[in-house]
């Protein structure tokens, strides 16, 4: 589904007791309605999130192919997966895609935020224009960019018909470059979202620090580079983590733009999982791919969540 930056608003200090009430009644009794109220959701999350993830982990260690098979086979699915060229291409693509996508989206998002922060006229309509792609589905995004990047119909055809005969822009049809075409569409979809995070951070920068830098004779570029951008480092971390999490599950965009093609040159781990689970009857390998994605996500996300909660506690 969509994404949202993780912001944990600090809770009021518990020692004041303002957050708790109903003292005097027995401990369990006064909390019973709250427990009852939250238990359906909690149960659903425990089953659908944690239970299902463990279930997938079990499948990844089992002999399941077309139908579930509960016999455990150790890491054989993982070994088989790493022996598949399709997985190697997908994993390699994920590394390239994530690196380029995160760096370029952060750069474009920051650029937009800084430009919008110059007291420009028409900030509101401009923000609307930069952010609307985030509301549009990745399937629609993929279809639009598929035809724009297709050399026969899109930018290349347009430039050639405008008189530039030798113009070439055919990333999407070539195996070596197709992943860059996916990056273009992904950046277009998410840069506006990142600029919202950056713009909020820029507007929260301590004015005294900026003033001091200016009084020291630092020019605007210097001030941005050595005072303001370091001051918004938390926004870089939030945006970066969200983009990596997004990159790990990118699926729709590839399906709509290239259907993993040419061949499987633009496959990603997410498309590998889908293929193995629903097209090739290799449940065990599909689960192994899914668990690999989950482990990457956990490595990136868990330290970040801890950091967010610490930050909220410190405030």
């Amino acid at each position: 589904m969509s994404q949202s930056s993780l912001r944990v608003e600090p809770a009021p200090h518990p020692r004041g007791g303002a957050g708790r009430f109903g003292r005097g009644r027995s401990g369990l009794g006064r909390h019973a309605p709250a427990w009852l109220a939250i238990s359906p959701s909690l149960l659903a999350i425990l089953i659908f999130v944690y239970g299902f993830a463990l279930w997938t982990a079990y499948v990844s260690l089992s002999a399941s192919r077309m139908v579930p098979d509960f016999a455990l086979v150790g890491l054989r699915n993982y070994e088989r997966m790493w022996g598949q060229d399709r997985w190697l291409v997908a994993a390699g693509n994920l590394v390239t895609f994530t690196a380029l996508y995160v760096v370029v989206t952060l750069a474009v998002g920051l650029l937009i935020a800084i430009l919008l922060d110059q007291k420009v006229r028409g900030e509101t309509p401009l923000r609307t224009i930069f952010l609307y792609p985030a509301a549009v589905s990745l399937i629609v995004t993929g279809i639009a960019w598929k035809w724009l990047l297709n050399p026969g119909t899109g930018v290349e055809a347009f430039m050639r018909s405008a008189g530039w005969e030798g113009f070439a822009f055919d990333w999407i049809i070539r195996s070596e470059t197709v992943i860059y075409a996916i990056v273009v569409a992904a950046v277009w979809q998410q840069a506006g979202f990142v600029s919202v995070l950056f713009l909020a951070a820029l507007r929260g920068v301590d004015g005294e620090m900026v003033k001091a830098a200016r009084l020291d004779g630092a020019g605007p570029i210097r001030t941005y580079w050595s005072v303001i951008i370091p001051a918004i480092r938390p926004a870089f971390i939030s945006a970066g983590v969200l983009l990596v999490a997004f990159a790990l599950k990118t699926f729709d965009l590839v399906v709509a733009m290239t259907a993993q093609g040419p061949g499987y040159a633009s496959a990603l781990p997410s498309t590998f999982v889908y293929d193995m689970a629903f097209q090739r009857n290799q449940l065990g390998m599909a689960a192994a791919g899914a668990i690999s994605i989950l482990v990457f996500a956990a490595i990136i996300v868990l330290p970040y969540v801890v950091w967010e909660f610490r930050k909220s506690d410190a405030r």
Partner: peptide, 29 residues
Amino acid sequence: TKFRFPGADAIMVLIILGCFLPLQAVLIP
């Protein structure tokens, strides 16, 4: 938030971590 019963914080973390779940990880189950 209004009934900070014992375990409320842990439950909140458990629920909120779900925001980052890659859906592929639960697809088969």
